[in-house]
Design a protein around this nucleic acid. Structure first.
Lengths: 196, 196
DNA sequence: ATCTGTCTACCTTCTAGTAGGCAGATCGTC
DNA sequence: GACGATCTGCCTACTAGAAGGTAGACAGAT
């Protein structure tokens, strides 16, 4: 009973890893079949088409993200700390090479050539992250835990761009530490000046 | 005589557009042949393999960039202005949809699955942009035309990440204006405070 | 008796790449 | 200037393999 749905999770997990490295057109059902140890045709049983597979993958990716955000906000009261935890999550993923890139970042860059159903889900992911970061910025501004120099939604977009840009640079140079090098000053700038 | 080498330029141009929208695995010789109006086999005459084609494309992309940088520095003395022109170049490209994404940004995100010869050229491109921006930051710091809060090379990486992150966001949301929204505060932060 | 997950075997279309031919431009030599 | 040889760019025709996907059989669980 527990093993039954596990195969489809394994398929999704291996698809995620493959997309993470080469994007939508960078993997095939044959690739997944090798990793999971199942025949191509059996993958079609779980996900009739490639579009179904990736649509579901991105949908779950967003849902998992939403769940993580809920736990994060429950456990970390300070808004600056929330941003630090978020940045640190990516710093670790990149440095231990476990998930060195965001699936949705890769898909977003391929957006114009993506099947529309997938493209929609990818856009939804970015809207989710963006609106979450905006609420964090707004709360931090009101409570004084964040030092903003622009409107909250602008700061949110700028922070998101910095994170994803840093992710790209780390990959482009093949130097994981570049991520933290870029994020540190960005977080410093958001840190309230203690006294004067 | 002049038409002879033109075909290979057309091939490169259409490949650039195709990569810009879907990456390395997102286009085929058949796609190019439709755009250029030439048969698949004829493309192989100009570029024996896909790797040859994309390697040359990225190499020229970098060389063109290097040439543009030279002219830019000759014509614009102020370092802040240089950064503004650079940012504005991308803002225009994105907004008029002429070149709404950087070829090398797309290839860099696919880096792990790219043929090594192409990957090397992509890394070279990023090293070029990064070291150029570092020299701009250094000069601006010394001459007082830029207001730096970190070391020049860190500011350079941060700026580059902001530009490429903003490019991604603009594409992800399908809203070109997001690019300028993100870049404006980044450029403001680099602007020296006039007096006090 | 049906449902679930897997299999083998197959199909069609697309992929990068090759072989070889052909027309026209260019070139060296007489 | 004429003549053949080579070079250039393109063509048709083809290949082997990979792509996504289908049909249908089978074993085991419900």
């Amino acid at each position: 009973m527990s093993n039954l749905s596990n195969t489809s999770d394994e398929i999704l997990a291996s698809a995620r890893n493959l997309i993470m490295s080469g994007g939508y057109n960078g993997f095939s059902y044959a690739d997944i079949s090798e990793v999971v140890g199942i025949r191509k045709a059996s993958i079609h049983h779980h996900f009739p088409s490639k579009v179904d597979l990736v649509r579901e993958l991105v949908k779950r990716y967003r849902e998992d993200g939403q769940a993580s955000v809920v736990t994060l906000e429950q456990n970390v009261p300070d808004e600056l700390d929330i941003l630090k935890v978020y940045a640190n999550h990516w710093a670790k993923c990149i440095e231990d090479a476990s998930r060195p890139y965001c699936v949705c970042a890769l898909l977003a860059s391929e957006l114009p050539s993506l099947p529309p159903e997938v493209a929609t889900e990818v856009t939804n992911f970015f809207r989710f992250i963006s609106s979450w970061l905006t609420t964090v910025m707004e709360r931090g501004y009101k409570s004084g835990t964040l030092n903003l120099t622009s409107e909250p939604h602008v700061e949110a977009e700028a922070f998101l761009a910095t994170v994803y840009g840093a992710m790209l640079s780390a990959r482009a140079y093949g130097k994981p530490e570049v991520f933290s090098t870029i994020l540190s000053p960005a977080l410093n700038r958001l840190t309230p000046t203690v006294s004067h």
